[in-house]
Design a protein around this nucleic acid. Structure first.
Lengths: 181, 181
DNA sequence: CCTACCGATCGGTAGG
DNA sequence: CCTACCGATCGGTAGG
């Protein structure tokens, strides 16, 4: 039951990542988890509600069990960046980015969920940088996340992971926009 | 006639930018240009063919009349970056990025068109950097384009254009990943 | 360039 | 958790 719920959300994430919000179908999702479409609606009120579930799960996985930045902020930072990059490299794309472009004002709750997802992620990143004494941690976090997200463009269009790898190295050294570690 | 064709492609671009490949409908496109849907099919064989038209137009607009980089590579560079950023700031998103995430292996010609679009753009950027004696111009161009594209994430999710503005400044100074001008 | 239509699929619901 | 269905919309075509 619980595992089924989690499975549904994980499969929904794969569909959103690959096909975007519009392109992901409830029929496809049902088939992936071995249910009929109607049965999905006993767990979720509608398709839109899946977005916040997917992003909550992703945020959890990204932040869970991170090394305490108050003990070793550099280790926490490297671990966080590494997790994000690993997902991008494995899955080729970022669900969050696909949803950011895919949700519009006709699905306002999904839009709010996406916006919150990225704000929380940026804040967590900034928290770590702040502990490291990095100037303007909020801007730095936003810029580094933008670089990582943008690098998925090259992975998805030509399979080139080098821009992502360079982004990770640069993020590790904090040499973003002249901040340098 | 010619103007109608161009108008169709421009409106298709707006639809792809806002709604992605799947989310853009031929019916909507027809309504925008004052035709019935069936009439679109006298100009274009199918929806997929619109993708390369849209990207060809965009590439033209981006590169047309650029200052000759052999005379003043820095002026050419600033102009090109400025054009890209202006579109992102005005339209809030990048069509190319939305299409990159939106086309799959079921639309292989569209996929090829997107891949070519970004490769050509990166090559043009790298050409300019090469004339400026920037080391590893191809990587630098890819990284800077990634940063600009990634910055649209913040525009589209929270209306924050500051990451894009910082990306433009950084690109102008070429202070990407320790290259510095 | 239109009207009228095609089969397929969409998100979602009724009713058990 | 299913079968069976709803109206709406999709890309695309026939035929004039």
């Amino acid at each position: 039951m619980k595992t089924t719920l989690r499975k549904i959300v994980m499969e929904a994430r794969e569909l959103f990542r690959e096909h975007g919000y519009d392109g992901a179908s409830m029929q496809d999702l049902a088939a992936r988890v071995g249910l009929k479409k109607a049965s999905l609606y006993t767990r979720f009120p509608n398709k839109e509600a899946l977005v916040s579930e997917v992003l909550t799960l992703t945020l959890e996985e990204t932040l869970k069990g991170l090394p305490d930045p108050r003990e070793d902020w550099q280790l926490a930072w490297q671990t966080l960046i590494g997790r994000i990059a690993k997902t991008f490299e494995t899955r080729k794309r970022c669900v969050g980015l696909h949803l950011a472009y895919g949700v519009t004002s006709v699905t306002p709750e999904a839009q709010a969920a996406v916006s919150q997802f990225f704000n929380v992620l940026r804040e967590r990143m900034a928290d770590i940088l702040r502990l490291g004494g990095i100037p303007q941690p909020d801007s730095a976090a936003a810029d580094i996340l933008a670089q990582l997200e943008g690098a998925t463009l090259w992975i998805t269009t030509s399979g080139d992971v080098e821009p992502l790898r360079r982004a990770v190295k640069s993020a590790s050294r904090l040499d973003v926009f002249g901040r340098k570690i």
